[in-house]
Nucleic acid binder design. Structure first.
Lengths: 117, 117
DNA sequence: CGCCCCGCTTACCCGCAGGTTAGCAGCCGG
DNA sequence: CCGGCTGCTAACCTGCGGGTAAGCGGGGCG
């Protein structure tokens, strides 16, 4: 698999883990989705993502910024305001996410059909 | 994102998690790779996947079987022999894995280029 | 009989993601 | 001056994925 070579597979694992690490975690995708739908302020994100805690939100935002998927901007007021925006680069994740979602859907169907019997 | 509707995004999350759950875990992909490269017996899998323990291997094999990605067959000997083989269905994961790997590679490059400066 | 191989299972431990609660500095409105 | 909102951080706890070590029933082998 992966070009029919086992060594290539092993070599590919770090990149796979790399990619997974970003999509992974309970909140990364919800955060990106919220950002893309126009929410920018910390508290607004907190409110628009039901269930997330401020601790986790802050941490995930840092991670996503480190991955260059979003930009944090501090507008010195007063009052100071912070906003987060998804970078265009974040869109390059879309095809990957679509693929995962589609396979996930089809797989769920398969399990629903053949599993219960 | 995901068809420009936030509700669709939320609806898609279970499928995403579903798909992730299968690819996820330290050993799922290595096991599938080993199976596809022709290894079928439990002990052989254990040996061809350096670092895995028999406990984890057994558990992951059960999971993968439940997901219908592989088939477990017991050949009553004596001696009894058990073999595991990847089902053709497992190949439907390839495009997903390719996408992840490719994005992961390109992303790694991006971080290497812009990060250090 | 003694020993090793196979295919597991059991019991125990550990690290880390993530949840819970609390608090803090800065600003504002009343 | 009091209370509330914003953008966090700190301290604590829990669950779970996974590692480690050991063992066990069945069989083959010398």
């Amino acid at each position: 698999m992966l070009e029919h070579s086992n060594t290539h597979c092993i070599a590919a694992m770090p990149f796979l883990r790399n990619a997974m690490a970003i999509i992974n975690g309970k909140w990364k995708l919800p955060i990106l989705m919220a950002l893309r739908s126009g929410v920018r302020r910390f508290r607004d994100l907190e409110r628009s993502i039901p269930g997330i805690s401020s601790k986790v939100l802050a941490k995930e935002l840092k991670d996503l910024e480190a991955q260059q998927l979003l930009k944090r901007t501090v507008h010195p007021g007063p009052p100071v305001a912070v906003d987060y925006e998804a970078l265009p680069y974040a869109e390059t994740l879309d095809p990957v996410i679509f693929m995962l979602r589609d396979w996930g859907m089809q797989h769920q169907q398969r399990l629903d059909e053949t599993g219960p019997q």
